[in-house]
Write a protein that binds this DNA or RNA. Structure first.
Lengths: 204, 204
DNA sequence: CATCAAAGTTGACAGTGTCAAGATTAAAAA
DNA sequence: TTTTTAATCTTGACACTGTCAACTTTGATG
């Protein structure tokens, strides 16, 4: 019933989100215009405005979906209790950067200036995103307990620093500034190595 | 002679760059339109096109100026031979993040997706930016020699990782996602501490 | 069945980047 | 000097954007 030639589309909201996602992944964020999007979905220019207040609101919704995916993906790896902590730590790093590499445009949306700057973030987006930030802190505390990160450093600072590193790798990779895509794995390993060494420096 | 009421402006190019810089620093990159810029400078809409091929070219020029500033600023700190290496390392980190905090919009331009993605970077921009990337590598090698970073790791990887950390801190700060501005100094210290510890972990 | 609100429509407006063609002027050539 | 030339600046135009207002259609509610 979400099919064709009906005045009411049926489920325009998700149709818009899907199409928007496709356009973004293929042609980049800047290439997304509401008018083009509406045309692709087969609806008039202003129809989307009954489902999203703004273009910004639409982008926020896409980003929210991204945070949702990221969160579950992070949890999946973090909570594999059968694997050694050090291994999971490495895996998490690879997964984080890997996600950004696979979905560069959505990552850009999630963590880029556009949405967060000057209070443009939707309440709905905040509700999904903040737990993600919080989860990063939870993981950091656990890593400290496991001796993967120095336990005499403030957990919040450490969380910010470790995340910054991953975020930075992801961005340099996405922006194609510096890091060749083929070197990503090595960079992740290097980062993991550096962090884990910093924990063991005073113990013996 | 770059004054008023003359058909030829005199030095429109730098006038445009200055005005553009002012607009960007005050209202953000997205607020910069060529038409508004032309109006501010007191010239017709299409006049800028005789000095910059594109809006993109103008942005590249601004970014190039940013790289220039960054490069000299980094050199100044790095080459203070009277100070202890560890101190300079810390100072460099603070300086890097500080620059980003003071000029968020220009930093965004320098390292943001917009310019570098899909080969949009001007040749002129590349010529200024690549030496900056190279300098990061040079510094990393020196830090390894000083024992501030592990010397059994590949210098390139290490440079990428350390830079990623600073870049990540800068971005999280700029985007206002996570890091409160008042905590920046602590984050920088934490990062410096972690890196320096990773170098000494196996030496004793 | 009548009513109402949700969902979708066209028309319009102010803004954008950019091209083409013409006007003005500084510099170079005669 | 005068003439030519090229750089610089102008207006006009086009296609495109986000978004508002007012109207139409339709599914659901009373």
């Amino acid at each position: 019933m979400a099919n064709s030639s009906k005045y009411h589309h049926g489920d325009l909201r998700t149709a818009l989100l899907n199409a928007a996602n496709a356009i973004i992944e293929e042609h980049g964020i800047d290439a997304l215009s509401l008018r083009k999007l509406a045309e692709v979905v087969g609806v008039s220019r202003t129809a989307p405005y009954h489902h999203f207040k703004d273009k910004n609101a639409l982008l926020c919704a896409i980003a929210a979906k991204g945070f949702d995916d990221w969160h579950t993906s992070a949890k999946t790896i973090f909570e594999q209790q059968d694997k050694a902590p050090g291994l999971r730590f490495r895996e998490f790093i690879h997964q984080y950067v890997g996600y950004a590499a696979r979905h560069p445009q959505v990552y850009e949306l999630m963590f880029g200036r556009t949405l967060w700057h000057s209070h443009q973030a939707t309440d709905q987006l905040k509700e999904v995103a903040y737990p993600c930030f919080q989860y990063q802190l939870t993981m950091t505390r656990t890593w400290q307990e496991f001796g993967l990160l120095p336990d005499d450093q403030d957990a919040l600072r450490l969380a910010q620093v470790t995340w910054s590193t991953l975020h930075g790798i992801a961005r340099l990779l996405i922006d194609g500034i510096y890091a060749d895509a083929s070197h990503v794995a090595e960079m992740c390993d290097c980062a993991a190595e550096v962090f884990m060494r910093s924990a063991t420096s005073r113990e013996e």
